[in-house]
Amino acid sequence: MQPTLKYFIRQISACAALCVALTTPALAAGYAYITNQASNNVSVIDISKQQVIATIPVGKAPVGVAVSAKLAKVYISNVEGQSISIIDANKFEHLEDFPIKGSPVGLAIAPNSNVLYVADWYEDRILEINLSDMQQQREIHIGKAPAGIIVSPDGKKLYVANRDSNDIAIIDTEKLVVLSRINVGEHPYGLTLSPDGQKLYVVNVYSNTVSLVDTETGQIDTVRVGEHPYCVAVNPNGQYIYVTNTQGDTVSVVDIALKKTIASIHVGGFPEGIAFQAATQQIFVANWFDNTVSVIDASTNKVTASILTGNQSRAFGQFILEPVH
């Protein structure tokens, strides 16, 4: 068996090297779409180049981002403009603004890219928009001031952080009904799921904590992070989560097995959105006060770059579009 296995590995390595060599230009590490609230545009960062390659005008006060590799589109919530901007991810061009009767903040796309979920900050509801035509819509009323939203990897559940109700709503995406609500800390805002969907990580802004929620049993562990935390990202093996602390100008690294903060990384002023990029093992952080994005090397937990973006960068949600291939 041994020689066969070695041969097999060698073949894979050779193929991988060849594939990379042949397709490097197309196989970029991906792009980060950073919403700039005060300049009403989106900075597109080419992750392999570590620089802004396009600036796309959108609606007023953009905040949330959702990406679809399948559709090659990026969706932006313009909370003051009361619209969703649609971006062509191949041409880095603004396609259209889709009006929303409400104030859209959090966005999430189903894994099959069929529907977009929109959290309406003031009207306490989630809108479901069919992405094939943007016309077929459903809605569900939930807790107060829905903020962060995310869909389970199997697409069956939608998790919503109800900021002013201090809880999480779990929604059945087929019937669009609330299955349950789980109390977390004070003012839950950003959230994310472990890659296997078994753990939900919720940031509690006023409690300075993250709730680690078991999505099957509902059991919760609470971990203290920095001051006024906002958003959270998870690494691909689910070992660590990274939390932005807006009033600490830091990112807390939480070890999930140990259930505690093991490092604090100084980034730019008022860090908000955060995302983990698997291919390069880097963490991208949008700094609202400094108009920059900090890049963290996940192997060292050190900031390796600071990229100038637009005014008041937020990047709320899953803002990195990975290559499809």
């Binding site: 909370v79 104030s103 900050w121 003031y122 107060k144 001031a145 900021r163 002013d164 609202w288 008041q312």
Partner: peptide
Amino acid sequence: LTAAAHGPSPQKVE
């Protein structure tokens, strides 16, 4: 019942 704790867009002065 109707008002959120605060608006959705923070402002800054420096």
